[in-house]
């Protein structure tokens, strides 16, 4: 499988120093977990030193589309379409969102739209059982450690969840061996600019409600037998949907 990992020139949120984006590092890890034989990093923009760090995480080759920063989607799409003529990538992987720019996480979606490819999002890992060639089975990460299976047709774009555990280790020797290649992107007109006023972030608290100790009354059982009490609890929990039905409980144990 041939995979392309989209790379951005990110910054460390704490220090503001140039740093690889966690999601993109995970994308490299996911590409490896998917068994990608060829793995190329692709950056829409001129090369910057920080990109070499992705080499440390396992990329042997990084292609920088200089001039591509004006309209990254167009530049990336052009590159990928051109590449398809030679050896088509099966997979384009990206982080959930960049770190240091607009950080909207929109780019992979736009790229998929432009290429006419499907996009699978928030992926943490491949599923163990893979379907026949031409499709991919992936685990989408959900809150509270849950996962959702996603089947997607190749070629496709995949964004990697920030919760994914597939973080490759950093190897300095690989970093210094990485080939960062500048390639001139075709001249594209300036993409849309975000409007409004850019200023330092002011941290605002999240909503909290007024502290309360009381509450509204509900069902009340006084001095039931333990059996009645247990049965009532089980029935109540079932009605809330927090306790799996008996048959589900036994089947979930087996999985």
């Amino acid at each position: 499988m041939k995979a392309i990992v989209l790379l951005s020139a990110g910054i460390d949120p704490v220090s503001g120093r140039p740093a690889p984006v966690g999601g993109e590092v995970r994308a490299i890890g996911l590409a490896r977990a998917l068994g990608a034989k060829t793995l190329i990093g692709l950056h829409a923009g001129a090369s910057v030193p920080a990109l070499a760090d992705y080499g440390g995480y396992g990329l042997k080759e990084i292609i920088c589309l200089s001039g591509g920063e004006h309209d990254p989607v167009a530049a990336l799409a052009q590159f990928l379409i051109r590449a398809s003529n030679v050896s088509a990538p099966d997979l384009v992987l990206a982080g959930t969102r960049g770190c240091g720019g607009a950080d909207t996480g929109l780019l992979p979606y736009r790229l998929a739209e432009k290429l006419g490819w499907p996009i699978a999002t928030g992926i943490a890992a491949p599923l163990e059982e893979q379907p026949a060639a031409g499709r991919l089975a992936l685990a989408q990460a959900r809150a509270r450690g849950a996962v959702r299976p996603v089947h997607v047709t190749l070629p496709c774009v995949v964004t990697v969840s920030d919760m994914a555990e597939c973080v490759p280790s950093f190897v300095f020797a690989d970093k210094r061996a990485v080939q960062v290649r500048d390639e001139r992107a075709e001249r594209t007109p300036q993409g849309e600019m975000e409007e409004g006023l850019l200023r330092p972030y002011r941290r605002r608290p999240k909503l909290i409600s007024a502290a309360r100790t009381g509450g509204t009354g509900g069902q009340l059982l006084v001095d039931p037998t333990p059996e009645e009490a247990a049965a009532a609890i089980i029935a109540h929990l079932r009605s809330l949907g927090v306790l799996a039905a008996a048959d589900e409980a036994s089947s979930s144990k087996m999985t």
Binding site: P13, G16, G100, G101, D103, T104, G196, L198, R199, Y201
Partner: peptide, 13 residues
């Protein structure tokens, strides 16, 4: 909305 790795924010319409 926040942007720039959470170090900046953008105010707009």
């Amino acid at each position: 909305r926040p942007c720039g790795a959470g170090r900046q924010e953008r105010a707009s319409e």
